[in-house]
Design a protein around this nucleic acid. Sequence first.
DNA 1: ATACAACTTGGAGCTGACTCCAGGTCAAGT
DNA 2: ACTTGACCTGGAGTCAGCTCCAAGTTGTAT
Lengths: 139, 139
Amino acid sequence: MTDAYTIKEAAEHTGIPEETIRYYERIGILPRAERKPNRHRVYRPKDLETMKLVTCLKKTGMPLEEMKPFLKLSVGDDISEHPELHDLILEHRAKIREQMDSLQQILDFIDSQMIGIAPEAECGLADQPKRFGFLSLKP
Amino acid sequence: MTDAYTIKEAAEHTGIPEETIRYYERIGILPRAERKPNRHRVYRPKDLETMKLVTCLKKTGMPLEEMKPFLKLSVGDDISEHPELHDLILEHRAKIREQMDSLQQILDFIDSQMIGIAPEAECGLADQPKRFGFLSLKP
DNA sequence: ATACAACTTGGAGCTGACTCCAGGTCAAGT
DNA sequence: ACTTGACCTGGAGTCAGCTCCAAGTTGTAT
């Protein structure tokens, strides 16, 4: 039993609540976990990595359903057998870039409104009446 | 009439669907809009700006309820009368920074896995078996 | 033997953020 | 007078993503 974890331990290691891990299994985000004779779930290190990958992808705003193609890949898989993933991942990479741009714009906007230096932080709010023009920010 | 917009026009200008604009009014995200004698909503430029601010804050992952304090502020308001907002906005600014860090880490991780340069892009996935170690990325 | 804790299942309930709909009003055009 | 289209209201329905619960099983400790 090299490195076997209970669901509780898996929850602790990944930060994903037990209930949610079971939920993920139910909806097919995680594969049906290995069971002990007493039906209890057993998790291996690679399973924990998969869970962390879910958390990771979630942080980038990817919906659970969209993760499935990425999660289906098993460890040794080669992209040449999954050319569709190449595009998917590039696509998602582009989305992340967009998100970062949005956040940066908003950050610039907040800061400019807060300290009055205004580096034209669009976000479609360039000539917004200074709702935030009241804060003095000490960075 | 100085710059009055129908709900349809407001929707076009802000990218927020009509139904959603009405919904925002219902739940108090937007103030009750001015009405024409025929009960139709009328929007002024400042209202469109408020809507854009909602869109903007949404992009940063702020839940609608949390926006209320920011949206309640009217144009000329002074922070000194709303010291609680100063903290709220700084708090949110910190959240945005965190989000950006997360995204950057994931971007680094993807890229490192894709081209094999691996600048140790944590996200809790440093020693993830190379699920993504199959892509050749041309930036 | 019995209590207890840690798990199991299947299903119900919840929150946030919409989205849709029925039935009604109103102004303008034919 | 009548139709059309843009709008109105209040309420119901939808979807994602959990979260909770009841009822049952199993393994260990007293």
